[in-house]
Design a protein around this nucleic acid. Structure first.
Lengths: 147, 147
DNA sequence: ATAAACCGTGTACTATAGTACACGGTCAAG
DNA sequence: CTTGACCGTGTACTATAGTACACGGTTTAT
């Protein structure tokens, strides 16, 4: 029993599935970025249509969302790859997961504390901008430079 | 009245001052990174000895410390350059400082919230590592992938 | 006085994270 | 049955943030 690609795309025998361009749009990234993530194994080999076109699912959209969010928080693609070992149930990547996660937890804690200080600095900086617009003298950063 | 470089370095007529290598060591960065920051105007033209050697002060050490800390928190060198406009009392860089700082403040706030969620995720992930060591199934990241 | 240890300049190279593009195949509409 | 909008592969290019190195001058210890 065969279905045309169009039929599958429209009625989702195989669930709802996207071609690379639509998928990239949904993920709000460049099409090439998707291929790049595939090369880096952040996305597993996608299934393909008969003619070799990649197809993606809603789950893949979530996965890219996870990658992007982690990345914005300073995780490198390699670190994200490592974490995804859990999702992919990959024993190799899971081997020293406890150490890895513990280390990252410490880093994240420290980062939160540092960011709170930066937030205070930025607030102060804003307050001192005369008539809420400009300033040439602001000793707050200098305070942060000390320490 | 002239002093030898050695005399100045030892007895600090001009305050305590460092040559590039010692300075880089104190800052815990590569010597080339210092020159790179100079090229990118993150460090102002340093004063020089008669023979053209760069000399740095304790304040410069603090400045590099500031750069490094901001960088670790996800600020780009360009953004740090902008912020340093305040310290350098540079009117051009200070022009839209209020908008810039406001935008960064929002970003930092969001980042703190996101990091807290990541922290929870990492904590959960750790807890679920059987006998505090390994695991192949961890539904927490999956939870984060959703949302 | 001479070698070791610095320094300056300039240029090239590296890693990370993409982005662009050329060339050729596929497919659906007119 | 051809045109336009896709797609795949491969390769090259970009920005950011460094890092390394060669060549030649300086300083300092021996």
């Amino acid at each position: 029993m065969y279905y045309s690609t169009r039929f599958i795309l429209l009625y989702g025998v195989n669930n709802l599935s996207y071609r690379i361009s639509e998928f990239a749009d949904k993920c709000r990234v460049n099409k090439e970025t998707i291929r790049y993530y595939e090369r880096k194994n952040l996305l597993q080999e996608p299934s393909r249509t008969n003619s070799g076109y990649r197809t993606y699912s809603e789950d893949d959209v979530k996965r890219v969302g996870f990658i992007k969010r982690m990345q914005e928080l300073g995780f490198s693609l390699n670190e994200i790859y490592k974490l995804l070992g859990v999702v992919d149930k990959d024993e190799i990547r899971c081997q020293d997961m406890f150490e890895f996660v513990s280390k990252k937890e410490e880093e994240v804690k420290k980062q939160i504390e540092d960011l709170k200080r930066i937030e205070r600095m930025l607030k102060d900086l804003k307050k001192r901008c005369p008539d809420e617009k400009e300033l040439h003298e602001c000793p707050i950063i200098e305070a942060l430079i000390e320490d």
